[in-house]
Design a protein around this nucleic acid. Structure first.
Lengths: 229, 229
DNA sequence: GGTTTCCCACCTAGGTGATAACTT
DNA sequence: AAGTTATCACCTAGGTGGGAAACC
């Protein structure tokens, strides 16, 4: 008998967005996928504290889509809350059959948020690419690009994760819980104020509207674990 | 500031049913509600180990429906699995606003399983009675009648719950884990073999079919906790 | 005196980074 | 040498009945 162990990890910090401009009475799915940023493989260079190109990317992995568990819901419901993707799980096992998002280690990725009108969702599946067309709108934010690792390369990332993730409380250095974090965030030049505003033509056939996404915490490195048998 | 504490308890043992005879391609909700068996209030008489009538029932409580979390799903999906209601929660707080099922202590109740065709579900809500009509079929089993309590009256019930509920493992008497249980089950004359078969006219406009419900564990006493502020 | 509330130790279930062992 | 895997102590989160206290 073979027992499958599933060392899969959540993405942390999680993407959190606030949405406006939907038709309150229309039904929508909201989904996330994660796409490669380029065709490169990266290596962390300690003395310069930077990720450097180190060859070409590995071959593509099966496409996976995380369908937000509150789906299906009305525009009204989606807009009332901050939509959090904290239960999204990553793995580097290309044979994963649990619907988790599969990524290569040491590559750069970009999460995308998809808003999918119900009547356009017949093709929606965790194992197929998100359909495109009139009933689907896709958003991504440059500041959410992250690099995958199996062991943390940068001690500041580790510190940030320990300070922010409730499940890592056991590793907290009870001396400087909050103040240390501020300094770390300042270190990251790509950190941005938490509110982003995008405009797009509302796909409910109403007039143009503003859509606000509040992106609260950026992703920096995201640790993978593997599934094996 | 007022913090609400929610001493609500799961129903245990949970109802578990196996369903056949649905249209595999049709979409269904499955739901449970719990209805009074009579208009009496009961008291446990120790020397005879029996529940005896002790006055009339309390005034009715707000109707609540537990919609199975796998809803909405196809007939095919429902029929492939044992459908378990183990996350259904009970409370005796009539002001509960979390959608839990509200019951009076020391009353007799009967759980009912409802199978609701999707196109008939517009009225379905946790706070409204289950609609009736052609697209809804309701089932109940006499052996699942139970009595509500806030503290267990019968030591054999306590024993059975401790032995069967994983969350009560800390109270187990590691001497007679299994054999003691058998004796307890024999004590209950209303215990039945685990498979029940009912026939009904399939409401998907197909020919008559058999519907099998496997009711696996009977409910005996179900402990309530209250919500307060 | 019977019933209910409140708090507790003790569980299940599962999400952390550290670290030693393993792989390439 | 560098990257990955397996295991671990330590958390969060939440479901148990016991039993003292409170209620009525």
């Amino acid at each position: 008998m073979v027992l499958l162990v599933l060392p899969v990890r959540r993405m942390f910090p999680a993407m959190r967005v606030k949405i406006a401009g939907l038709d309150p009475h229309q039904q929508y799915y909201i989904a996330m996928d994660i796409v490669p940023v380029d065709n490169k493989r990266y290596r962390y260079v300690y003395h310069s504290s930077k990720w450097m190109v180190a060859g070409n990317a590995d071959s593509p992995v099966p496409p996976r889509v995380y369908i937000h568990p509150d789906s299906l819901a009305s525009g009204d419901t989606w807009m009332r809350q901050v939509v959090s993707f904290d239960k999204l799980k990553l793995t580097n096992n290309e044979l994963d059959d649990q619907g988790h998002i599969i990524l290569h280690s040491m590559h750069k990725y970009q999460p995308r948020v998809h808003i999918i009108r119900k009547d356009f969702s017949s093709e929606l599946s965790p194992n197929k690419p998100v359909p495109s067309g009139n009933g689907v709108k896709t958003f991504s934010f440059p500041e959410t690009v992250f690099t995958t690792v199996t062991a943390y390369q940068n001690q500041q990332i580790t510190r940030l994760k320990i300070d922010r993730n409730p499940f890592a409380k056991g590793f907290r250095d009870s001396g400087r819980n909050r103040t240390g974090l501020e300094a770390i965030m300042e270190t990251y030049a790509f950190w941005r104020p938490p509110v982003r505003t995008l405009t797009f033509e509302d796909f409910t056939n109403m007039q143009k509207q503003q859509v606000h996404f509040i992106y609260i915490v950026p992703n920096l490195e995201s640790r993978l674990k593997t599934l094996y048998n």
